[in-house]
Design a protein around this nucleic acid. Sequence first.
DNA 1: CTGAAAGCGCTTACAG
DNA 2: CTGAAAGCGCTTACAG
Lengths: 348, 348
Amino acid sequence: MTDTEPRRRARPRGKRPPTILDVAAHAGVSRGTVSRVLQGGHNVSSASQEAVHAAIRKLGYVVNRAARSLVTQRAGSVAFLLSEPQERFFEDPNFTTLLRGCTTALAEHDLPLILITAGTEAERRRIAPFLSAHHVDGVLLVSSHRGNPMVDHLRRTGLPFVCCGKPLGERDAVSYVAANDREGARAMVRYLLESGRNRVATITGPQDTPGGLERLDGYRGMLTERGIVYDTRLVAVGDYSRASGEACMQQLLTSAPDIDAVFVASDLMADGALTAIERAGLRVPDDIAVGGFDDSPVASATHPPLTTIRQPWARISEMMVRQLLAQIDGEGPATVILPTELVVRESA
Amino acid sequence: MTDTEPRRRARPRGKRPPTILDVAAHAGVSRGTVSRVLQGGHNVSSASQEAVHAAIRKLGYVVNRAARSLVTQRAGSVAFLLSEPQERFFEDPNFTTLLRGCTTALAEHDLPLILITAGTEAERRRIAPFLSAHHVDGVLLVSSHRGNPMVDHLRRTGLPFVCCGKPLGERDAVSYVAANDREGARAMVRYLLESGRNRVATITGPQDTPGGLERLDGYRGMLTERGIVYDTRLVAVGDYSRASGEACMQQLLTSAPDIDAVFVASDLMADGALTAIERAGLRVPDDIAVGGFDDSPVASATHPPLTTIRQPWARISEMMVRQLLAQIDGEGPATVILPTELVVRESA
DNA sequence: CTGAAAGCGCTTACAG
DNA sequence: CTGAAAGCGCTTACAG
């Protein structure tokens, strides 16, 4: 359009927005006082406070975050760092649920969320300087697989970070927030047994993730507790994808045709399992009861709707944010485990 | 842990990261020269350039973005603004595909993406000052419904913004990037007709969204072109959700039991339609051919896999980012329409 | 091609 | 409780 206009100027001819100096002038105080009001109004007379607030409203003043950051040495933002092959997480409904929760929780603290993906080695290299330079004050880290290099890198940067789910294979203390996977699995298996099922199989998550490991452990523990021998023929290892759920179920149906229930470690896989069962001409829950895990959006969309274990995503997000803020304020790492809840629908 | 430590300090005792002054000292030049190198090295001797680059590497210097922002009057970041009821978009696979694409495209320009949700009026009020204060340099706006107040608000702020999909009901020029919905719909209907189907129904998207409107228009146009009378009994209006696809299909099956094909305006709805068809005891594609739209991840996971129209999400993201950067550099608004592609699988 | 210097808009000891 | 002032780390005319 306007070819002659200069480029690379932010607001070429718009008048500058009001600064703290304008506010000070309007309120009849110094800019130090305005700043103090901005910081919470400690040690400021109520008369001054009111005058400043009035001026702020009148001028529509909003703090310049860059200027503030420069002096406070804080970025004033937090990263949501996805250190997984992108496909996996962007297709997993749990991920979006978590992202949404964190965005909301951070918004309440006026902290913008910066979304960073680091699924590949190249991406990790690219964001390293960004993190090292503390362009964010902390990191919400989503990375489930064992030995993720991001954990080490973050530790070296000295940036506060909180993981979603227990990071596997870390010797030192790392902050994380997780649902009680083991108890969740136990609750589901207990429910299946108490509804009269005898041969309960399981489809697990990947065995290099905490959810994969602990949900299997819960399954095994509950069987043992009830005096049932753990039978590896009743165990199929999936990768959380719908397709793997289908394949695993098909396998179980062949290797152990007498099963009457299956605990599936994710709803997405459970949906796949449903497909395999249906294809085999069996009915759910009449012939085989199916229990999922997550209570993700798919759980109520399957046929039949899934009986599943609800992960407390809202609370997980909140606690991740809370822990991160605490660490930014100097607290040490902490572990938070949140209870799950059995949601009974029609599949079991 | 360390109770006696002062709080609210960013890096209490870590040594400060190197500044441009350290680099200048190491390179034996002034800080103005370092800055010029950082800006691209124009008007700097190659000797100086090399010395500066060496110093940067040696010290691990990374620019302080806050300081830069303060002087350039640019935020150095871009917002991805979701102005829809959250549930909808966070469950729609298209959304995550778009978000992923934009994150990647922005990363290539070293621009952090700030994720902002503004699905409710309260949220919109909350982020208004953030936007007005130009805490981001531009906005990638995702908002499909007619008359979204965010468009007006953004226009008032003077912030550059680019919409994903045509914003309905806007009189003035607004930048947007969209797939060619109409042509995509035409291609699908053409394909169905040419595979020998005669009674082609459609399940549309919401009629206050461009995709809802234009895909229906494409359907209608192609029928007319082939001399087929447009029959409203063959049209059911959905809302892009899986559930609505199922309900619409059920309705069509009742009101027009002789249909032998259906063009569904989203893969998610098509998946729902598949369920309804199956429940009615009909086979796909033998009895009814089903064509979807999106080629989202669900398309290959349905039974049978969906023949659908691929939306060029990677290109859409790239173009949105490119347009936004152009606007930030002073260019005027522009409209970009990208072609779609027919993907033939098994459902039609 | 280069340096010295002003200035971006804040916060925070420091005096009073 | 309040003001004056230093300083956060950059960029960019301005001279030379």
